[in-house]
Design a protein around this nucleic acid. Structure first.
Lengths: 304, 304
DNA sequence: CTGAAAGCGCTTACAG
DNA sequence: CTGAAAGCGCTTACAG
């Protein structure tokens, strides 16, 4: 089923069919032909061939999201959901590419399917663009969420805080550290030190113990995310420290599993759907006004 | 940078360039020209335009994996990893599409980027193809893994088992139930009954209590996956039943979070990378021999 | 108001 | 051994 078939069935030229199907109002085509063409297209089940169109227009009706290893989580899922919904509404299809991404692999993507845009997940955070763009992270982005985490601790009387980050380092760790420090200054408490929490339980317990030895004044640990928080919680249990009496722990980006530990993990829930929708509009160069990401919430369980 | 540029730079025709770059041995082209062309292509940084090629060949160098909602987990991650690696090795790029998939959305995908293949995640399980294809699930697929779960329980003296599935139903639940029943028959124990475990804690506790009332002889619960197992574990704790003394619990598809509960969750770890590689070769119609998925392993913690 | 033509970048029979 | 030509399906100046 091609344009040619529709043209033949209607008795007009291919160009005319293209014009009416693309609603080109520069061309004055009689209402009658318009209707006949549309009718025929419908009856024949004509669907434009995306590859041909992409060759002609230079770009396909797709957007690719690249997600680097280690960046997946609850946030990314919800982000993908919003991105997908918004793109779909504009007749674009979202395709996700996993793995490690370099300028070369991105170029390859462009060469292979010529997407309208390729979005690197987390890029706005990594480049710091988020702070300037669209109202910025201090209102409803990573900065605001980081601040909420610190604030909850402060509201519960904690002023000496440590930040636990994944061992091996997440690309986002430096950014989080910066925002957390900034939030601490704004709240008038000392800027938190950070330490790495290894995957392996014994190593993690050691790391937690070492940090607590070095900073005996610390009464609360803010985690980079829930995975880290869960490891820290287990370490504290193995170390015989009571949570939250001896040390409080708060997670970040609620993944749901904090409900199953003893004590339950208090954490920050982020709804990233609106962020995803925002990215979609940015990628399509559409108006982004009226898109208000909901604020993050504290999920109160028992670890603070 | 197009074929034309390379041809111009070398002083041969576009066809010749295409022939040497695609290693067409039907054509007898002098070693000298071959070298000159390749050299020029390298120097100019020529990369074939995937969209043009796709238009000509009818299919692009991509494979799309569709993942329906609710099918994500540790298994799917590891599967995606293997699929990606294998496809990459054959110069294909893997693109993942999320959301709910219907024949229409799949057709749309075909129309938009003409992928070489679209793989529906879990399809081999859902259609039951897995059992016939490539050695089959009883050796190293879902059937074998389901059997391992039951066997571990039986080896620990349990003969009356219940299967806990997600409320709302996973597309895979029926398949799992079938395999579990089959495994039970093979091991000479009664075929397990199943019950749905709701997300909400109170409702889940109620469901677990109700099932245990109805089937007081049950001494062990096999879960559809770790998420369900974790909920069941919490329910049992809220119900005041000791695990594993009163009731044993075993998960499926280790997601790592079972390490943080008390007691720790015993579960089945599945390495799906080889399954992903297998799918890649199947999609590319390549030889699949020599690909041996490693067997699943029991991760012993404390809940059995 | 509508159609013939060019061209996006490639591959591959076909003809020398 | 190598090149001219057709054609994949579309869009869009351009000419009537």
């Amino acid at each position: 089923m091609t344009l040619n078939d529709v043209a033949a069935a209607t008795g007009v030229s291919r160009a005319t069919v293209s014009f009416v199907l693309n609603d080109d109002h520069e061309q004055r085509i009689s209402a009658a032909t318009r209707e006949r063409v549309k009718q025929a297209a419908r009856e024949l089940g004509y669907v434009p061939h995306g590859v041909a169109r992409a060759l002609r227009e230079g770009t396909s009706r797709t957007v690719v999201l690249t997600i680097d290893e280690g960046l997946e989580g609850h946030y990314s899922h919800s982000y993908v959901h919003g991105l997908d919904a918004e793109l779909r509404a504009h007749a674009y299809v979202l395709l996700v590419r996993y793995g490690h991404h370099t300028p070369q692999t991105t170029q390859q993507l462009l060469d292979v399917i010529a997407p309208r845009a390729v979005i690197a997940f987390g890029e706005t955070y990594l480049t710091g663009h988020e702070l300037e763009d669209a109202g910025g992270g201090w209102r409803d982005g990573l900065a605001a969420h980081s601040a909420l985490q610190v604030r909850h601790l402060v509201e519960h009387g904690h002023t000496r805080i440590a930040l636990a980050v994944p061992e091996g380092g997440s690309p986002l760790a430096a950014t989080r550290l910066k925002f957390t420090g900034q939030a601490a200054r704004d709240l008038g408490i000392p800027v938190p030190d950070s330490f790495a929490a290894p995957q392996e339980p014994a190593a993690c317990a050691e790391a937690v113990a070492a940090h607590l030895d070095r900073r005996p004044e610390v009464t609360a640990i803010a985690a980079f995310n829930d995975d880290v928080a869960l490891r820290v919680l287990a370490a504290l249990r193995d170390l015989g420290r009571r949570v939250p009496e001896d040390v409080a722990v708060i997670g970040f980006d609620d993944n749901g599993y904090g409900a199953f530990t003893t004590p339950g993990l208090t954490t920050i829930a982020i709804d990233a759907e609106a962020h995803g929708r925002l990215s979609a509009r940015l990628a399509l160069r559409l108006d982004t006004s009226g898109l208000l990401p909901p604020p993050a919430r504290v999920v109160v369980r028992a670890s603070v």
